[in-house]
Design a protein around this nucleic acid. Structure first.
Length: 584
RNA sequence: GCUGGUGUGGCUCAGUCGGUAGAGCAGCUGAUUCGUAAUCAGCAGAUCGCGUGUUCAAGUCACGUCACCAGCUCCA
């Protein structure tokens, strides 16, 4: 904690001031913990009373008073027994003290009548806490464990200056305007239906178009890089999942069709593609000459997520992923892993998301063995190999304990949504367990049968989730190559319609096919406004002068009026942007 | 699954103390053909998410349920 920076220290102190205010207003509340986080701070309380928006305002007002009182924030230390005595009315603090290892310093911070168990550091006076805002009250499990009691968490933020606070609050507002879940519905990319069900979005023509474009791009690029496409069934008998381990380790996440007690055969929709593509490998005997074998598939998966988990297009129950499994020898593993990573990075750069991601090396949790198959030795080996590769490739990762798949470690490429919540966009995994389970082998140079290593990977992630992040990244203003409508043609008067349709034909002849004509007899300013709301990249306005001079007047959704230009020049410009997948 | 919030025409919202739904935009029809962020007029569109209950009477109250939103947990 000694490395805590100035801002984190302030936020931590702000959380104490908030807890003090809550204690003054609601004396019966029990304190849990209140750390500083990336975006501000929070404090968890155990309270019978649930905090409302009005309560937050009252708490904020009380915090103001505490700052005004300018209480000195003082540190002191106590031996264990005295510490327990001091906190005797705070059961969560007692638990924390009891969990501190023998010999650890037990320190407290005191400001006025309020004292909290805390390692510090803190600012010296409560008056330093002046630029803050309480954001929301929500539930959170004690110690992040769903078996524990749910406490009430108040999220807030604080800054060193009021200007920084204002800027941050404004940024939060702006970010919410890019929320894919709102924007994606407004732009008619997707919708949901009460009678279809939770986590099952309907992709409308424009959303489906974008996904189609992404999918074509991905499949072509994968083919260029030596991947072979498979099409495997969307469901299988329980037998398959029993071999893979899904039946034992993932059954809660599967949609099972039938009842094991009553039915002769029980099927399940697939939650992952792995065991299906393995059957393709198992089609005949394999030799080292067949390796590496790279199988890709545009794969629709079904996962029975808990009801509270669904979120727009980011977390759904049915989704389609750019899936792939690569079988290789130990010698090939590093190069092939690198190839998978390069493909993922190429995708991210093409989409313009490369600067927004971070890497997580997801490892198993040896203290939670029932979540995983395999032995400690196998896990140590697989993780050791991945660590070596990651270090070799100089990937700047952070470690996630307990984040591994049940069959192996992962390199997860993480991205944050507009609310700051992090999700996995792309994952590359090393698996040395399932080949054994499925009896996948190859005959090596020495004539011996061996199990291949398997890399599970995705190149662009799940199309729905990737689309969601793209909506947020571009606030709906997709690059021209991805835009569901690339060009809107706007005649100023009806007499310009014939020319407009000629322009359309000419564009289509040149491969620019996502073109729409607004042929309504409306004022031109009105049509432009509507096209802008649709976030169409280009508008071509045509009037008498354009027909006379054989030009089009071009409006760019970002840059505004580009003036009139020859149609051929415009076509060349747009063609270049589409072919090079230009982001602007 | 857990905590809290929200469901009124396609969208944004109004609807007083329970008395049987209202506007703007979008849509449709007609007029307008007008050079850059909303042309004019008219029409149509809602068993108030769904169900049960209380009541003479429910969009308003109660219970249940479904969906949506934020957070927790879980996860691509």
């Amino acid at each position: 904690m000694a490395e805590m920076n100035e801002l984190q220290t302030l936020r931590h102190s702000a959380s104490h001031v908030m807890a003090q205010a809550v204690k003054r207003l609601f004396p019966e509340v029990k304190l849990a913990i209140g750390p500083a986080i990336d975006t501000g701070f929070y404090y968890d309380f155990d309270s019978e009373h649930t905090f409302t928006t009005e309560d937050l305002e009252k708490i904020e007002a009380e915090m103001k008073k505490i700052a005004k009182e300018n209480l000195k924030i003082e540190r002191f230390e106590l031996p264990r027994e005295e510490a327990l005595e001091l906190m005797k009315d705070e059961p969560y603090k007692i638990e924390l003290i009891n969990d501190l290892p023998e010999g650890e310093t037990i320190s407290f911070y005191k400001q006025g009548e309020f004292t909290d168990l805390c390692a510090g550091p803190h600012v010296n006076y409560t008056s330093k806490v002046k630029a803050y805002k309480l954001l929301s009250a929500t539930g959170a499990y004690w110690r992040g464990d769903e078996k524990n009691k749910m406490l009430q968490r108040i999220y807030a933020t604080a800054f060193l200056t009021k200007d920084e606070l204002e800027a941050d609050l404004l940024m939060r507002e702006e970010a919410k305007k890019r929320d894919h879940n709102k924007l994606g519905r407004e732009l008619e990319l997707f919708t949901t239906s009460d009678v279809i069900g939770q986590g099952l979005p309907i992709l409308l023509p424009k959303g489906a178009r974008i996904i189609q474009l992404l999918q074509r791009f991905v499949e072509d690029e994968e083919q260029k890089r030596g991947w072979q496409l498979t099409k495997t069934p969307l469901m299988a008998k329980s037998d398959l999942y029993k071999i893979s381990g899904h039946w034992d380790h993932y059954q809660d996440g599967m949609f099972v069709l039938g009842d094991e007690e009553k039915d002769k055969e029980v099927f399940a929709l697939r939650p992952m593609t792995c065991p299906f593509q393995y059957q393709a490998y198992l089609n005949r005997g394999r030799s080292y000459r067949d390796l590496p074998m790279r199988l890709n598939e545009t794969s629709t998966l079904f996962r029975n997520e808990a009801s509270g988990e669904m979120h727009g297009l980011i977390r759904v129950r049915q989704f389609t992923i750019s899936e792939g499994h690569l079988m290789c020898t130990p010698e090939q593993l590093e190069d092939e892993f690198k190839g998978c990573l390069e493909l993922a990075i190429y995708m991210l750069k093409t989409l313009g998301l490369y600067e927004d991601v971070s890497y997580r090396f997801s490892q198993w949790d040896p203290d939670n063995r029932e979540k995983y198959i395999g032995t400690t030795e196998q896990w140590d080996e697989a993780q050791g190999i991945m660590e070596k590769i990651l270090n070799h490739l100089e990937i700047p990762y952070k470690v996630g304990i307990g984040e591994a798949a049940f069959y192996g470690p992962k390199l997860d490429i993480q991205i944050k949504n507009v609310f700051g919540k992090e999700d996995t966009l792309i994952t590359i995994q090393i698996d040395q367990m399932l080949a054994q389970q499925f009896g996948m082998e190859y005959v090596d140079k020495d004539g011996n049968k061996k199990n291949p290593y398997i890399i599970h990977r995705t190149s662009i992630g799940c199309y729905e989730r990737t689309l969601a992040l793209l909506i947020e990244k571009y606030a709906g203003k997709f690059p021209v190559w991805l835009a569901p409508v690339q060009i809107k043609l706007l005649p100023i008067a009806d007499r310009h319609l014939d020319y407009i349709y000629e322009v359309k034909k000419e564009l289509e002849k040149n491969g620019i096919i996502r073109v729409e004509v607004d042929d309504r007899s409306e004022k031109i300013g009105y049509k432009i406004r509507e096209a802008q709301l649709e976030k169409v990249p280009y508008m071509l306005v045509v009037g008498d002068k354009d027909i006379e001079n054989n030009t089009v007047s071009v409006r760019d959704r970002r840059d505004g009026d580009l003036g009139s230009m020859a149609l051929s020049d415009f076509i060349a410009k747009v063609t270049e942007e589409i072919e090079n997948k230009v982001i602007k």
